[in-house]
Structures are given as C-alpha cells and as structure tokens.
Design a binder for these strands. Structure first.
Lengths: 248, 248
DNA sequence: CGCCGTTTTGAGCAGCATCAATTGAAGTGG
DNA sequence: CCACTTCAATTGATGCTGCTCAAAACGGCG
C-alpha cells in the first residue's frame, strides 16, 4: 500500500512493538510484509466481530478502544491501545475477530498480514517467540485486571488507571504527568466496572486532594506519590503497567 | 520419565487438547516430547511465580486452580483447569511463570517442554497455529470474564459459573447435570468477585427455586433451562464456555 | 446561536460485603 | 477408634460503597 516512507527501523515505538527482539535483518524482512494504510478517523472500526481474521495490527499513531458486546446489547471495553500496541489476537481463536476495535481519534496503523507473518515465524525463532510473548503479556494483564475488578475499590481502580496511563505515555516518550484523555469518562468507567458518575466524582475528589489537576480531557498529575498511595496494591504481578491497553 | 503407556492417540481428552488439529504423524511426534510425570497430590504446586518457565502442561486427570497474588497478599483465582486444558502460557511473558497452579485433588499432567515444542512448531504449521489459537481462546475468555465481573449481578455470575462447569464436564464425557465441585465455595467466590457467604446463599436460593440440588460438594442440575434463564446474557462472544478454566 | 453529547453534582437506595455465631465435615494424633 | 482440632459452609443482622435517577452546566460543532 502507500508507503509513507515509514519503516520499523526509524519508528519511535519499535521498542514496544513486535520488532523489539528482532535484529536488523529480521526487522527488514518484517518491513517487507507490513502494509501501511491510510489513516482511520474517529469512530472508524478497524475490526468488527465476525469479520474474517487476516491480520494483526500495530497502532502507529492515535488511539483505539477494543470492546465486546453481549447478546443483550451490553458493551464491555477490553482495552485502550496506543502506538506500538498490537491488536487482533482475538481473531486467531476462530479465524474471525471477536471484538470491535475502534479509533478514538484520527489514527494510523501498520497491518501485518497473518499468513506472511506465520511463514516468517517458521524461519525466525525470535519472531515466533515474540508473538507468543506478546500474547502471554496480554493474558497476564487480563489476569491483573481480574484482580483489579474483584478486589479493589473504585478509588483504587481509577488510581491504577491513571498511573498506568502515565506509565504508558512515559514509555512512548510523552509526558508522564500531563496528557490528554482520548476516551470519555463513560469509557473509563466501562473498562473499570464503574459508572460515569463515580469516575467523575473521583476525578474531582483527586483534584480536591491536590493529587491531580483536571481540565476537561487534560489531566495533570501533580502528586504522583500521592496517586500511587491510592493503589491498593503497590505492585502486582505484571504491574498492571501496559494493562489498560490489552492487545485484544 | 515413567511412561504409564498413555499416548495422545488414545487419550480421551485429545479433542480438547493440543493434538486436536494434528494428524497422526504429527501427534506421534508430539508424543515423543511429552513427559508424563507422577501424580500430584492435593495442594501440590505445579508452577509458582518466579519459577523459570520451561514447559506447558496439559491436565491429564484431576483438577487445578491458577491464581496470582498481589504484594499486599490478596489472592485472585484466574481459572480452574480440567483434563485437556493447557496451562503455563503465563510463563512466556518473562520466561518465568507468573501464577501459582495448584492441584485441587490428586491429578496427573503431561509436561510439554517448551524448547522442543517450539522447534517442532517451526516444522509444523498446524502446531504453530494451534498454540496461538489456544492462547487466543484464553484471551477471549478473559475478556468475557471482564464483562461478567463488570456487568452481571451475583446471581448471574453464579449461574454462568454453573452452566459453564456443566458444559465443560459434558465436553469431557462426564455428566452435564451431576458433578462434584473440587473447589470450595470460597474459591468460587474468589473467581467471581463474590464472598463465600453470597455464594452459599445463592446456592441455597437456587435449590429453593428447584433449579439445582446441592449436597455439599455434589451439584445436581435439576432445571437447566431455569438456570440458563438466570444468565443475564444468553450468549456472549466466546460463550464463556470453557471460560472458567482459563489457560493461564 | 442552538443542539446534542459529555460532564458534573446531588439525593436516595440497594445489592452485596462485613461481622458474628453455629453447625457440619474432615483430618490428626493419642 | 474416638476426642480434638481445623477448615468449610450456612444463616442472620447490619452497614456501606457505588448505583440509580434526576437535573443542571458545559463544550464542541454544524
């Protein structure tokens, strides 16, 4: 597809992405099979349940949410995705994607056709291993999430969410203390098993406690230590870091 | 190791296990690398967090629970495992298992040394694909679990749990309507984000409503239709079937 | 400017947790 | 083999966290 002259080599998120464990030669082979497509706009669907599984996708810019739905119309967000994240693993199960993956803003993706990826992985042990590793990470994150949902209070959940976002942005070279939420309060609540009202109330509470500053979608973390004290659990298995954007 | 003259070929759970998509030749190669070890006893740990990742494990008989712990001592059960289930995928992430996997009764396992499995998978596309597929299933199940925990009432959660157990036993050739719980009420509650008391109260309520019969650990499902009516969600993405024993 | 989706704030309520006590079952050792 | 200990399960009384319902303020966009 259109190239846009982007290569894994000079991608600023390659340390988070599939290439992380590949050497230069391997990265070049990977580059060969990647299709870089035109941007998606806000609310565009990258995958939809039932759609034939063909590819994994790496987020190049922007942000996505993944969610599943139940037959009675309930919606459950399973993760938010930022640059470097891989999505689409849910599709391997039955050769059909199981989730919606929707752009939360104008975003770009790298498409990794699975057949080619699979063939490459037969030759490259590191690639083979890396894919399993990413899926394993996802599984561990989901397990941490189960603990968060079952054992933590609303306050602890939101504190986890904010510190995790902070970590993720930091990993990507963005500010760890000031960032824009691309998701609504409603979506945050959906992920965390809380209502909008509770999320809103907690954000204002945190602000009153001089832990954060909230200006609409803009979050400024004033007292990161105070925020971390609100985590029920100082450090869980997979640290919940990178959790809130589970590869789906 | 001691052989016990069990082979995948004649294992009554091979339709649920890794061999499901392999042909006879492939299954034989797999058999070559499997180590069948002596039985584990109740409460024995198959894996422990931090332990070096070496193998995946297939449950051959008995049952296991997997759980993670947080630094403040909280424990979160992430799944129950029955014959044919594969456990250990959590270890790929950092070359160390992340969870405890503990026998709930006297149980047998097949050990699949990962290095050998990986080498085999370079040659066998079906095996390669199958491993990813199993992990993908696990991820989808975990996502269903998130919806269950975030959106369903206590009653709906327990109804889900019971129907899922029923399905899983049925898949394994056991009775779908009468089975023994190998886990305690406490462990059920832990998985479902409920307290022991709530689980106990609900079981007695279901019994009063003539939906099930409870005699200690022995559950008899009297009215499967009535039970399914209690599910908030008649059919979710991965049906939550096979969910409650997530491969960890 | 006016509309609509999002966010905030308040008041009241309920589902499930917590605390407490009893019973039952299982395992242990004398 | 039985007494004792320990753990699991049941049942009741009470309370709290976070949900529900409602309404107003805000903000982006055509």
């Amino acid at each position: 597809m259109t190239d846009f002259t982007i290569r894994c080599q000079n991608c600023s998120f390659n340390h988070l992405c599939i290439p992380v464990s590949l050497n230069n030669t391997e990265m070049n082979s990977l580059d060969e099979i990647i299709e870089r497509k035109r941007p998606l706009h806000k609310n565009d669907q990258l995958t939809v349940p039932g759609q034939k599984f063909t590819s994994l996708f790496a987020v190049r810019s922007g942000s996505f949410k993944s969610y599943i739905t139940s037959s009675d119309g309930e919606q459950q967000i399973t993760g938010f995705h930022f640059p470097g994240d891989i999505v689409g693993f849910d599709g391997l199960y039955s050769d059909q994607y199981q989730s919606y993956t929707q752009a939360m803003e104008t975003s770009m993706i790298c498409e990794l056709p699975y057949e080619k990826l699979d063939q490459m992985s037969a030759q490259l042990p590191t690639l083979r291993r890396e894919m399993l590793k990413i899926m394993s990470t996802e599984i561990n994150q989901d397990h941490s999430m189960m603990m968060l949902l079952n054992k933590r209070t609303a306050e602890e959940r939101l504190a986890h969410f904010l510190t995790t976002l902070s970590d993720r942005f930091s990993n990507r070279g963005f500010s760890a203390v000031e960032f824009n939420l691309t998701m609504t309060r409603n979506e945050i609540g959906n992920l965390l098993g809380l209502t909008v009202e509770t999320v809103s109330r907690l954000l204002t509470r945190f602000q009153k406690e001089n832990i954060i500053n909230v200006d609409g979608k803009l979050i400024h973390i004033v007292d990161i230590v105070g925020l971390k004290q609100k985590l029920g659990d100082p450090s869980s298995a997979v640290s919940c870091s990178e959790k809130f954007g589970t590869h789906n």
